[in-house]
Structure formats: C-alpha cells, structure tokens
Design a protein around this nucleic acid. Sequence first.
DNA 1: TTACAATTTTGTCTATGACAAATAAGATTT
DNA 2: AAATCTTATTTGTCATAGACAAAATTGTAA
Lengths: 305, 305
Amino acid sequence: MPRKEIVHSIGTVESEVGISRDVLRKWEARYDFPSPGRNKRGERIYNLDQVSRLRLIKRLIDTGIRPSMVVPESAGDLIALAKQIQVRIDGGEESKVATVLLRCLRDHDLVGLRRQLQHLLLKQGLYKFILDTVAPLTYFVGEAWSQNELEVYEEHIFSEVLQDVLRNAMDTLTNGNKEGGPRILLTTPPDEAHMLGILMASNLFALEGAYCIFLGAQTPLKNIASAALSQRIDIVALSFSLSYPQHRIAPILSKLRALLPEEVAIWAGGDGVSHISKKPAGLTVIPTLEGIREAFLKWGKTRTV
Amino acid sequence: MPRKEIVHSIGTVESEVGISRDVLRKWEARYDFPSPGRNKRGERIYNLDQVSRLRLIKRLIDTGIRPSMVVPESAGDLIALAKQIQVRIDGGEESKVATVLLRCLRDHDLVGLRRQLQHLLLKQGLYKFILDTVAPLTYFVGEAWSQNELEVYEEHIFSEVLQDVLRNAMDTLTNGNKEGGPRILLTTPPDEAHMLGILMASNLFALEGAYCIFLGAQTPLKNIASAALSQRIDIVALSFSLSYPQHRIAPILSKLRALLPEEVAIWAGGDGVSHISKKPAGLTVIPTLEGIREAFLKWGKTRTV
DNA sequence: TTACAATTTTGTCTATGACAAATAAGATTT
DNA sequence: AAATCTTATTTGTCATAGACAAAATTGTAA
C-alpha cells in the first residue's frame, strides 16, 4: 500500500524553504527546475524530493554561488558541490558529540538535549564548548535541515534550547564583569536574522571580562548609535552571516562608523565578512570565533598605551 | 523644505504589516483601500498613513472582525472601533507603570527596561508582576505598534527582554520544583507563533509548584505526545491567541486528546479559547491567566481523591 | 592592477481571473 | 430555544506572462 506522498503548495514551499513564490515560478521558467506536478486545479504541487533539493540549492546560494550555477544542476552534481563546500567548512572530526546531540533533537528529547549541552558546557568550559561543540553543531543542524532530516520546528527548538543555555551562561558571566573591562554592545544589522553567531561571540567576550549588552537581532543603525552613547559603549560588535548580501556590508559599516564617535570601535564578525576586501577605516574584522580572543588582547594593549 | 516622505513598496508592507501582496491587491480592488500612489514604474507606493491604517486593520481582523467590515471603513471609524474594543480589553488604570516602561522601550533604553522589569518583579512578586504588569504591557505594546508609535524591531526587542526576564524567573522556580508537584508540558500548537502568553502561564504554573517543561512555540501534535510520554507529563497546556482561526481549535484539541493517554490532562488557554463553545471531553479551558490558580487547585483535589 | 562601461543575471512587481475554503445567513428539525 | 443542515457570500491563494531595475559579471581602457 503506497503511502500517500506528502506534497507542498507553492505557498508552503515559500515559507518552509524561504524562496518566494515569484522566484520559484521564475526558476521553473528559466531553468526548468523545480518542475512540480499539478493538482486538478492546475496548482503546482512539490514533492519531498524537490523540496529538499530546493533547500540544498538555497544553502548553496546563501554561500554566494549564483542561482544559474546551481538551480539547473542535477541532484547528484548538487550533492557533490555541497560536499566540496562542506569539506571546506567542516575540517574537524569532533562530530561524534554533535551526532549524539543531533539524535537527541531528532528524538525530541529536549530535556536530554538541554542537559547534555549543560553537561558539556560544564565539562569543556565555555570557551571550548562554544568553539568545539556549539559552532559545529550549529553547522550540522543547518546541514541536516537542508537534507530534510530535520523539520523546521526542530531547528527552531534547537535554536531555542541553545539560546537558553548560552544566555544563562552569559548572564552569570556578565554580572561578574560590572567594572573594569570594556563595555561591548552586540547585535546584528537590519535584515540579518541569524543571531546564534553573535550570541556565541557575546559569550566569548564576556569570558574575556567584557561587560556585554546583547541587543538581539536586527537593530537599526540609529538605535545602535543611541544605545552606544547612552550605555557608554567602548566596542560595537556586529555579525554578518553568509547569507547576508555582501555588497551591503561595507556601506552599512561605513554608515555606522559615521554615526558613532571615533573613540567607539566597530568590530565586524561572522562568516559573511571573511570574503570582504574593502575595509572601511576604523574597523576591526574578525571572521572567525577563534579570532575574538586575539582581537580582545590587542584592544587591551591599545587602550593601555 | 518638505521632507521626502517615507514610502513603502508592496513587499515592504507585506513583511512589515503581515498582509500578503495578493491580499493587499485584492483589498484594493474590492474595497478601494488601500489606494497607494504609484512610482514612475507603475509600482504601488504606500505612505505612512496607509501603512499604519493597515496595521490597525490587521489588528482588528486578528480579533475576529471580518475584513469587509473594516477595510473599507474610514480612518476615523476605525479608530472609534478600536477604542471600543480597547475598552473591553483594557479595564484597569494600572497603565502608569506601562507608560514608563513603554517610554524606556521608545528611548531604546534596554538596560533600563530590563532593570525596571526585574525591579517590578522583585517588588510585586511574580504573580502580581505577570497579571498586573506583563499582561497589560504586552497589550500596550501591540497597541503602540499598530499606531506606528513603535517599529517592528522595537516590538521584537520588547519580546526579547521580556522573555529573558520570564525565563530566568522560571528557571529559578522550576529547579526548586523537582519533585512532588505535577509535571506540565507547555507549548503552542502549529501555526500559533505567540508565545508570550504561554510563557506567562508557565511562570504561574511554576509558582504553584509545578515542574514545567516549556517547548517553545509551534510543536506538532505528534511531538507533544511523544514528549509527554517520555517526560511522564501530567498536564499538557496549550495557548491559543485571538488570531488563531477559531474553527481549528476544537479539531486540534480532539486530535491531541486522541494521541495522549487519558490520564494526561489537556489544558487550553489564551484569548483565543474564550469564545469557543464546543468543549471536547477530557479538556479544561482556562481563558484567563487569573483562572490558572483555580484550575490548579481543582486539579490537586481531583488527584488526591 | 584599478576604474569604468557594457552585458547578463536575478528578483520584484504589474494585471486580471479562477476557484475552494471559511464564514454567515437562512431554513428546518429536535 | 438550541442544534443541524443548506445555501450564499466572503476571502485568500494561485495561475499566466511580461516589464524592468538592481546586482553581478565580463570586457575594455587607463
């Protein structure tokens, strides 16, 4: 008895994969993919294969590859390409822990997930925890999602639990850093929704003794400026993910630079900034989490001089 | 020198107000509102007036009023109608505190906002804090948003800070409730994104001595069931906001009832359930936050017998 | 190499109509 | 009077096909 295949309308795909209806239709016309079936009303119906392929395509495009290079490609070629990129990002073989945690997530054992994370945090210490566990885990979860191995809500839940753990840790840390260290304001720019990165960074900063003020995601520049002023901020830290349009990064940073007094430093991080060439003056770029500690030490020296 | 008026494209309105392009165009054709200007390319451009009127309309529709009753209405009539409903929800005159906190939010004094909330929590105690401060404040923020007095991101930030405060409180509470009290699983059903309500409820439950597991928003029913089983849950609590389609509430609850063993109770709350008539068997409806304490006491008695 | 111009790619928007799901209104029965 | 069934209206989503500017790439000159 063939199970009735789960199909998706164009609207569902739009909200689940994050590609707008118009774009889905255009791709179909331009690249012959996706080529959904039709129901009796003539409406597009996408099957699971197409949806997961679209997810993969979305991820590849988010890393900077142009649609024309991936949308018409065969499923096999896509996977090959993904592997190639994956290797670049992957590197380590720390994946055992990630696998265990991922299984927790798949089994919906949230309490277990939370406990294990907390346990790892205690065992590894915050620094190692973030770099060796949280960062790869985040990557794996994204990967699993694009392969249809996780549902949207499962990704949400993961982010939820992780945020909880990280914020708790930061609260504890920040309360001890009332005086002495630099005051850092952290957020993401408008239209940048990914906040796990900057949250991880917050923790690393707090670990180094900074007083961190975390503004959540998507703070308009004006408000960053006013907050920096009223909170006597020393450093404003922004995070750009890979999916953030590259050409918008430099202008945003320049604009922010103009809004802030020059004694306030601007630090930009995240996978999105690793490829930018033009660096506006008065700006520190920290493409990887590992670079945070170093940048921090350097800042301390500058200040003492 | 007349300042250049800020205008919005149909896409911007879609994402800022939460009404899809198609619907915006249909309303324009059917009700002559909105009637945006056009740029030289012939694209719709919405001014601030139209956007805020659309926000108000969205809110009114979310409370259950039909589009045909509000979309064609004049701005004046809309405001009158809004006032009418406002009165119904408002009631108290506790608004002074809310006003102060709202000002903090408008001034982007996040640290101040957080501190004030924490201060109020300490002063009033969790119960009073939630009922007299958080609940009305949430309402006011929604109200201010629809009047264009707050921006989207400001609403996000508010929700952010509030979640932080409430979760912290709950963590502290729940850790003390390891044994003895009932085990409650809290979440919202699929497509119900509003989670402040259930978060408030979580705190009130924890206050009464329950062990609360908060799953975040939009948990599929199957996963609620499996989580309930693995966590040996006594009560599953769901929250439905006003904007949740009424006709979907009863079926969802029945379906969940079928998935859960009968010794697991189902409690439904939120503004969305206050008007439902059909109550599926084996179900407790708690339309207001005040009802939680009562329901809890009743549950305790039943159990002892 | 860098800077500018030409070209291609890409996403957003327009217009109008079809249609089913959701809701209300009316009729009928318990 | 309340509950149930029918019919009518309202409402949102999807379809088609083409226009066009912003973004990215390529080619060319300094």
